[in-house]
């Protein structure tokens, strides 16, 4: 099962390596990892997408909580949530295909952010599946490069994602 884990972590030196090291050291896998500072400059939020059965994910969460620098850890996949990932895609765009590509871009609600000579850069934000579908359609034109952020996710409703409790999980 794929799980998205949200981690609020103190913005201290080495805090990130403790988290990523925990995954490698204990043989947990990481599908993607993204991190940024929150509104509070002393705190970062990290989103890790991992795969594993329930037992492993339970361990991952407990091990993460055990780290001294982590403030809150939450399996976002257990609550209703919104997940997004951004791709920047550089694709070949010969003049004769440009309008086709623009059409695809519009259909997927993506955005062309740069156009140079025979290529363009497209930005798309969405779930991993949607983005992947977009790539599939673009592939025949010739992909030059793909850069992605990794998933971030946020819970629906009034609470902050990491404030959801076990009870919330059951209700949903």
């Amino acid at each position: 099962m794929r799980h998205i884990i949200s981690i609020l972590v103190e913005n201290k030196p080495g805090a990130l390596s403790r988290i990523s090291g925990l995954f490698s050291g204990r043989g947990y896998n990481i599908e993607s990892l993204s991190v940024g500072v929150t509104n509070d400059p002393k705190v970062s939020i990290m989103t890790i997408v991992t795969k594993g059965d329930d037992k492993i994910v339970e361990q991952i969460i407990k091990q993460l909580r055990k780290l001294i620098n982590t403030l809150k850890v939450r399996d976002v996949t257990q609550i209703e949530h919104i997940e997004r990932e951004m791709f920047l895609i550089k694709v070949q765009a010969l003049p004769k295909y440009r309008s086709d590509i623009f059409n695809i871009v519009n259909t997927f609600r993506a955005k062309v952010v740069d156009l140079t000579g025979e290529s363009m850069v497209i930005e798309i934000t969405g779930t991993k599946d949607k983005n992947q579908a977009f790539i599939k359609v673009l592939e025949p034109y010739g992909l030059i490069e793909l850069v992605r952020t990794g998933s971030v996710a946020i819970g629906r409703g009034n609470k902050a994602t990491t404030d959801f409790t076990k009870q919330d999980t059951k209700q949903i």
Binding site: P13, G14, S17, R18, G21, L22, G25, I68
Partner: peptide, 16 residues
Amino acid sequence: IIGITRPIVKHSYLVQ
């Protein structure tokens, strides 16, 4: 040493 000991400590500090 902070890097080397990361998996074998409860916690560690580099005092800067």
